[in-house]
Amino acid sequence: MTDLSISPQERALLAQKNLEKFWLSRLRKQDPIARIGYGLWCKSADDLKREIILGDAEYWAHKGFPYWEFMARSTVVNISVGLQKAGFKGTVAEMRMKVREVGLEVAWHHAMSVERDYKKKLGTEPGLLSKKQISKYHHIAFSLFGIPPDSYGGTWFGAVPDNWELELYGNLYCHDCDTSD
């Protein structure tokens, strides 16, 4: 059984706000939510493809890059729509920066939940979260930005956005974009 506790390295990565390496570390431990976390914050689409191709097919639910790429893109869109509902207005670059801030809070709350679960030996495997725990910490992280809880649609990846939302915000999902876009 993999040790799912938050390692000193992961703690340091969070302190450095290094989301890519934090989620990569979680991915290597087969933390389920890391498939989205890494998909969101990896440096390039090729990095995500490589992890899926070389990784354990069962961990990736026997689904390929298009599926996980869509999940990550949908998450960005949901957060953007939530920020808009909360009254945030800004340029594309400002929206990207805000989405990243949300990402940092989500990662912090993930670490907090994992550690509480691990120390209190909740559930069947210490450090492995239930969908309920994941929903709750997303609600808390989102509330820090005024994003309503229903933006996290009751699934572990968030609600599937409408077509117009994907069209409007889909291009915010971009690994190497210049933030001045």
């Binding site: 559930g123 969908k131 572990w156």
Partner: peptide, 21 residues
């Protein structure tokens, strides 16, 4: 705030823990 349990297969997540819905 209700905590929904919808979504894709949840076999990879812990089936227990997390309190009330």
């Amino acid at each position: 705030v209700f905590i929904g349990e919808t979504g894709t297969s949840s076999a990879e997540f812990d089936s227990q823990g997390g309190g009330y819905n």
